[in-house]
C-alpha cells in the first residue's frame, strides 16, 4: 500500500445543507463550457458594444454639461448612428431647440430616456453574440448526460430533478449574465460616474432593476428553450443545429411575412422572430415609449413557451429513471 494511502476512513464531519446542490451542477457546466476556446473568444467579443455605447453616453453627458466642443445637433447626428429609436430622436430634437435653463429643467426626463434607449440598443446589439454563446454552451448540457448515462450518478444522490434543471439553467444564465446583463449594469454605472453629480441616482435608480427584470424576462425562456433542445437528443450537434435553426428560420419567416405587407398581423409578425419578442418585452420593461401593440400577449407567449419547455425538460430528465 502506498504511503499516502490511508485506507478507508469513516466520515464524521458536518454536512452542508442540500439547498445549494444546483450550484454544484451549475459549477460543472460552467467549468466544462469555459474549456471551449470559441466560447472564450465570443465572450470577449460581446464586450465590444458596451465600449461603443459608453462613448455615446460620454458624448451625451458632454452635451448636457455644456461642453463647447459638442453641440446638441452634432450629438443627435452621432446618436442617430447608434440609437434609431424614434422617440429618443424626437426628444433630442426638441431638447436641442430649448434654451439652456429649460434644458436643465428637463434633464430629469431626457437623461433617463436616453440612458434607457442606450441600454436597450446595447441589449439588441449583443443579441447575436448571446445567441452564439447559448449555442455553444447549452446543447451539450443535458444531451451529454443522457449520452454518458450520468443521470443515475446524479439522481442516486439526494438531489431532485428540479435542482438538476435549475443547475443547468444557471449554467446558461451565468454566461448570459456575463455577456448581456453585466455589461448593461456596468454601462449604467459608467453613466452615473460621468454625470455631474450623484443626484442622477435619485431619478435613475430604477434603471438597474429594470435591466435585471428585462434580462430575466429574456434569459428564462431562452435558457429553457435551449435546454429543451438539448434534452431531446443524445447528439449535442443536433441540439446546436436546432437552436440556430430557430433563430435563422425566425428571421427568414419575419422577413418573408413583412414582404407580404398587411396580410400578416403585426402580432404574428413579431412573435415569429424571438429577437423581436424579447426586444419588445425589454422596451416595455425599460419603460421606453413604443408604438408596438399587444406587448401583454408577447409576455404571455414567452411565459407559455417557458412552461412548455420546462415540462418537456422535466419529462425527458425523468424518462431514464422510469425506464
Amino acid at each position: 500500500m502506498p504511503i499516502h494511502n490511508l485506507g478507508y476512513r469513516e466520515w464524521d464531519g458536518e454536512r452542508e445543507s442540500g439547498n445549494s446542490r444546483w450550484s454544484v451542477i451549475a459549477g460543472i457546466g460552467i467549468r466544462r463550457a469555459w474549456q471551449s476556446s470559441w466560447l472564450r473568444r465570443i465572450a470577449f467579443v460581446v464586450w465590444g458594444p458596451p465600449l461603443v455605447y459608453g462613448i455615446v453616453i460620454f458624448l451625451f453627458e458632454q452635451v448636457l454639461t455644456g461642453n463647447a466642443s459638442m453641440n446638441p445637433r452634432m450629438f443627435r447626428e452621432i446618436v442617430n448612428m447608434f440609437l434609431p429609436a424614434e422617440s429618443v430622436q424626437a426628444v433630442l430634437l426638441v431638447f436641442e431647440n430649448l434654451d439652456t435653463a429649460t434644458q436643465q429643467e428637463l434633464l430629469t426626463v431626457a437623461r433617463p430616456l436616453v440612458w434607457k434607449a442606450v441600454l436597450l440598443q446595447l441589449q439588441r446589439s449583443q443579441a447575436i453574440g448571446m445567441v452564439i454563446v447559448v449555442g455553444l454552451v447549452a446543447p451539450a448540457l443535458i444531451s451529454q448526460d443522457v449520452r454518458s448515462r450520468a443521470f443515475l450518478l446524479y439522481f442516486s444522490r439526494p438531489m431532485t430533478r428540479l435542482q438538476y434543471i435549475i443547475g443547468k439553467c444557471m449554467t446558461i444564465g451565468f454566461f448570459l449574465f456575463l455577456t448581456g446583463t453585466l455589461p448593461q449594469l456596468l454601462l449604467y454605472l459608467f453613466a452615473v460616474l460621468l454625470s455631474p453629480d450623484a443626484s442622477v441616482i435619485a431619478y435613475t435608480w430604477d434603471l438597474p432593476l429594470r435591466v435585471l427584470v428585462a434580462s430575466t424576462a429574456m434569459i428564462v425562456p431562452t435558457t429553457l428553450l435551449a435546454l429543451m433542445l438539448s434534452s431531446l437528443t443524445i447528439e449535442s450537434r443536433f441540439a446546436t443545429f436546432g437552436w440556430f435553426f430557430i433563430w435563422i428560420f425566425g428571421l427568414a419567416a419575419f422577413l418573408m411575412m413583412r414582404r407580404l405587407d398587411g396580410d400578416t398581423s403585426e402580432l404574428v409578425l413579431r412573435l415569429s422572430f424571438l429577437f423581436l419578442l424579447f426586444s419588445d418585452m425589454s422596451t416595455a420593461i425599460l419603460g421606453i415609449p413604443t408604438t408596438v401593440s399587444h406587448v401583454e400577449t408577447q409576455f404571455v407567449f414567452a411565459a407559455v413557451l417557458s412552461m412548455v419547455c420546462f415540462t418537456v425538460i422535466f419529462r425527458r430528465v425523468s424518462a431514464p429513471l422510469r425506464a
Partner: peptide, 26 residues
C-alpha cells in the same frame, strides 16, 4: 450503477468530488 455511466468532461478526481458535494460534503 451497472451501466457504463460517467460525468462527461470531468476528471476522475473531479467526478468523485462532485459526488461528494452532491452528498453535502463541504
Amino acid at each position: 450503477p451497472e451501466d457504463d455511466c460517467y460525468m462527461y468532461g470531468l476528471s476522475g478526481i473531479e467526478s468523485v468530488q462532485v459526488a461528494a458535494r452532491l452528498s453535502c460534503l463541504p
